[in-house]
Design a protein around this nucleic acid. Sequence first.
DNA 1: AGGACATGTCACAGTTCGGTGACACAACCC
DNA 2: GGGTTGTGTCACCGAACTGTGACATGTCCT
Lengths: 226, 226
Amino acid sequence: MRVAGILLVEDDPSVRTALELALTRQGHSVTSYATGEEALDHIRARRPEIAILDVMLPGIDGVEVCRRVRKLDQLPVILLTARGDDLDIVVGLEAGADDYVVKPVEPRVLDARIRAVLRRAESAASDRITFGELVIDRGALKVTLSGKEIHLTPTELRLLLELVRHPGQVLNRRYLLRAVWDHTHIADSRLVDACVQRIRAKIEPKPGEPVFIHTVRGFGYRFNPP
Amino acid sequence: MRVAGILLVEDDPSVRTALELALTRQGHSVTSYATGEEALDHIRARRPEIAILDVMLPGIDGVEVCRRVRKLDQLPVILLTARGDDLDIVVGLEAGADDYVVKPVEPRVLDARIRAVLRRAESAASDRITFGELVIDRGALKVTLSGKEIHLTPTELRLLLELVRHPGQVLNRRYLLRAVWDHTHIADSRLVDACVQRIRAKIEPKPGEPVFIHTVRGFGYRFNPP
DNA sequence: AGGACATGTCACAGTTCGGTGACACAACCC
DNA sequence: GGGTTGTGTCACCGAACTGTGACATGTCCT
């Protein structure tokens, strides 16, 4: 099941907390703010997968955030409004929102609408895999950790992708040498170890106790989904 | 303003006539039917731009029509339902509907939703794509940067379009050689590199640090929407 | 504990890769 | 023909990458 990085903007703290809780329960990962300014910063910095914006906000309102976002980006947007005021709906959809939801909303309905919007947006999106904070985009060949892009060299990336292709499986050094380096029969080589070490230095929060790439003494390495 | 060929399916004759009239007044061209079977025939034969389907229909219902349509086509679908029954909404959106409207509906609101759905569908198939300051008109084969027209040679344009067709994806040199030059298996060639440089010189504000076409060392190039 | 062995760590130098500009040639247009 | 434009190729250079070996550290077994 896909899990989305959702940006939620809602100035009423009780509504915000309730929605955040409900969405988290549905399996989404949610970041929330109270103002449009913060939301725009977050969008620029963290690239969420979808934004859910309350229309009524102090300062820059949801519709305006939506307009600005639409100028730069394809980021899917759902607008939230307190009443089903028809004029709001027209304005909101004209601003480029992908959907428009009237509060109060059943969590299940909001979830369905989020998934519908994401499904539509996905056709253009690339295939990526998420392991907790680690996101590997196989199409863009990008790796991000907690939203920050990590630079991996070609060999490091190929090795990581090979490990990730078999999550939970132990891959021995000979296999990895063949798969990543095309080395057919170099028996003893510290190459793999060195490369794993370099990857760990980049993606493991504490390289001393690896979370992602585990050493299986005597056999090889295993990529563990957290 | 764009005028859409709308397929309307609604079994209640009075509602059908009312909606047809309202939509026609908004400048749309509407064809309407009372059953899902007729609708599917129409879709196959006439390729409407958008379908508005009542959920409750005798025989094949709206959700089922939506499901079948989605299997073959990208045809945008809006579902209509008599009450705001939450379960219906979830089922409908899961079936792939682009939007879900509860009757009775203000004509202006329905119109806004139609336009929003069409706008989204359009951006996927549109002739003109905008990436920040860079505008690529695939119909006119013109590229403009900050409003100024940029002259690209045919090969440069083909390469740029190929990259833009897969935004965010890394495309390797072999692929690009095949796609743009029809070269089947020239292994080592700096052709792509040279062409990318020429494009960069024209569209990148600072060719030293490219914004649009990124090099992914060891793999290829990636067009990054800003 | 102590030895044997497996793995982590690190720095460095050779190698590869891509950016860049020059250039030759073909195609095209006056 | 003569000039202009588009395209492929090449050589050079700096930057980035990577393999290697030496050494440190860790783990397992007796």
